[in-house]
Design a protein around this nucleic acid. Sequence first.
DNA 1: GCCATTTACTTGATATTTGAAATAAATGGT
DNA 2: ACCATTTATTTCAAATATCAAGTAAATGGC
Lengths: 163, 163
Amino acid sequence: MILPAAIDPETRLQGEDHDALRLWLRLFTCTTMVERKVDGMLKRECGSSLPRFDLLAQLYRAEDGLRMGELSERILTTNGNVTWLVAALEREGLVRRRTAPHDRRAVVVRLTAAGRRQFTAMARAHEALIIKLFAGLTATERHSLHALLGTAKQHLRHLRDTP
Amino acid sequence: MILPAAIDPETRLQGEDHDALRLWLRLFTCTTMVERKVDGMLKRECGSSLPRFDLLAQLYRAEDGLRMGELSERILTTNGNVTWLVAALEREGLVRRRTAPHDRRAVVVRLTAAGRRQFTAMARAHEALIIKLFAGLTATERHSLHALLGTAKQHLRHLRDTP
DNA sequence: GCCATTTACTTGATATTTGAAATAAATGGT
DNA sequence: ACCATTTATTTCAAATATCAAGTAAATGGC
């Protein structure tokens, strides 16, 4: 059975393009498709967004809170962006900012009780959606994919640390 | 050899989380890492950006140009964003907008000669970087990864077309 | 203890993205 | 031909993101 060609970023590929290029375009396409679905759901169902959810998720695991710098590393964004996001979430009462114990330059962010509640609700909807979105793969395939991406990620990290 | 745990979006995972969730976080992490490197390079070396490059790439393959709507489908973004991007690229002299032949609502966008030149230069740098970024995988691994993502993508597309 | 440097953030100006509402032009009955 | 509906884009306001300073507080030598 011939599938109709999909119209998306991969459309621009040509016969002679390198392996890695094809791989990258497909990776980008898949991620963007999932990202948009997740972000859309979080907006519609929870009045939040993917960037906010990501930030809350990091804090949820950090009993003692995280510094701004740690947060920006973890959610792969800039310092300025984290300052902005945290300020917004603070206005919404979901997180709280304090000066760090022994370093008056640093700021520690924590989830409030409300933030914890909000996050738990979102996390449930989020997980359900993700499971549905990746249901096209068998558990074995998901494992292989996870492993292969692990190799890719290790190389990327290596490049970052030794440029 | 034990590797130090990486600090990134995956950091928030816990033991009992679902397969699909781990997979998604890793996918997201890898894609974002590559995205930032590529975007950074295009900005530094070419005074452009990844979204601009993506748009130009689509036009490069389309001898007869593309409509705004086709463009937004292909680069997986909103209409409004394409309007904005095309306007910017037009100011820079890289693309040209025309009303479509038989439909005065529609607009056809084409690369200018300058756009074609710009794109070719960027494409060279882009491909070289992508090859480097995915060099941690063997050709076989890149193929498997590509194939697995193909399965995932097919399911995602299926979900989109039949909600 | 003092200064140069580094570190941790915040700010402000811009750039980009999204989503919803507004426009304008085609289309399909009637 | 006329009207309701659909289609193709643009516009506008709000949400995010980036980058380049600017500020304040630690740190390491001397």
